[in-house]
């Protein structure tokens, strides 16, 4: 991992079109500004990891029985709602 020391309002450039700037330094937190192209997604790491984990679980779902789940749904009286 590349490690750099930055002060308030200093930044880091990654490639030609990504820039990270230190906006505020508090006791236990740092506020960071990120400029990136529209086709680059920016995520909080821990949130991204939760989604990855949920997706892996979802992909292992046993799909053989989902018609039962559908009927369970209907039994509970949920009706399709138009978005």
């Amino acid at each position: 991992m590349l490690v750099l020391t930055r002060r308030l309002e200093e930044g880091i450039k990654i490639g030609v079109d990504i820039e990270i700037k230190i906006l505020e330094i508090r006791k236990n937190a740092v506020r960071i500004g990120i400029v990136a192209p529209k086709d680059v997604s920016v995520h909080r790491s821990e949130v991204y990891e939760i989604i990855q984990k949920e997706n892996v679980l979802a992909s292992k779902s046993d799909v053989q029985n989902i018609h039962h789940l559908g009927s369970l749904f209907k039994k509970k009286g949920i009706k399709a709602k138009k978005d």
Partner: peptide, 21 residues
């Protein structure tokens, strides 16, 4: 179109849906 991912569990009623993503 907006869709949510489902984790199918056993029993089926314990299945969960990801409302965050």
């Amino acid at each position: 179109i907006v869709l949510a991912m489902v984790v199918i569990s056993e029993p089926l009623g314990a299945s969960t849906v990801n409302m965050v993503a």
